[in-house]
Design a protein around this nucleic acid. Structure first.
Lengths: 135, 135
DNA sequence: ATCTGATAGTTCAGTCCTGTACTTGTTTAG
DNA sequence: CTAAACAAGTACAGGACTGAACTATCAGAT
């Protein structure tokens, strides 16, 4: 088995991810959010605390702070102090926030789905397995 | 075959790509370039004209202009007018530029390789095939 | 020759994003 | 109990990035 060209594969995967983002960004903007804000909304249920969120999203803490502020003032998330640890803030989706997240994820799934559909169902499952293994 | 969760797979792949970038960024900075500047350098041989480069890299033209300027003043690329079309500029790597690119790509390949190594050789080849199909 | 529409690239203004340093609150060692 | 160490989150400054508008050149039609 010849060794594969890592940089080639990397470039392909990077391009795949980027192309989806570029494609979806305008529609998301119409929804009132940026792409990374959508990712933040999508992880909120699983990780309600900003510090954990920052780690999960691989973004620096100040970035999470900034997005949180914007999303809060847009009415998409709520913030409350964690009563068991006063350093912590707990973020949660508002009704509007959940609605926007759902729509945004649908747009993302549509764009990514157009690419995944070039694979057979079995290949799609295989792709998922491989990416899971790599992380 | 159950339908896969597109958003899940998307999130995984996004995270994979991002984690590599985040991991490599500090070392690249020591080399004197940003991550996206490396991608630009890496595509320069194949696409010497800024407009084509912008499309290949999925970035807006002004961004390519800005990076080109910085890379030129850092001595990593050269610019010359295309004599057959005075609107066009032809970019090319300098000796230093090629050296930095080679090192940068090696860092990238190392980081991405650590993830790919969790797959068998056959799976790696399969992954490449699948990503190629999707683009 | 000149006009028209298209293309290459840049400028600029303004937003986005993040590194550094800080405040506030919690835990732990003594 | 207190002080040092640590953790959550923020403020701010400054660099990174991009959309809109612009200049210069080209190619084709009249």
């Amino acid at each position: 088995m010849a060794k594969i060209d890592l940089n080639k594969v990397w470039a392909l995967d990077y391009r795949l991810v980027t192309s989806v983002i570029v494609e979806v960004a305008p529609a998301l903007r119409e929804l009132g959010i940026e792409c990374k804000e959508l990712f933040l909304l999508a992880e909120l249920d699983a990780h309600p605390h900003p510090a954990v969120l920052a780690e999960a999203l691989l973004m620096p803490k100040p970035t999470v702070t900034m997005y949180s502020k914007r999303l809060q003032s847009a009415g998409f998330i709520a913030r409350e102090l964690d009563s068991t640890d006063l350093r912590r803030h707990r973020l949660s989706l508002t009704g509007d926030g959940r609605k926007v997240m759902t729509r945004g994820l649908a747009l993302l799934a549509a764009a990514f789905g157009r690419r995944m559909n070039r694979l057979t169902a079995a290949q799609q499952a295989e792709f998922k397995t491989l990416v899971e293994k790599m992380l």
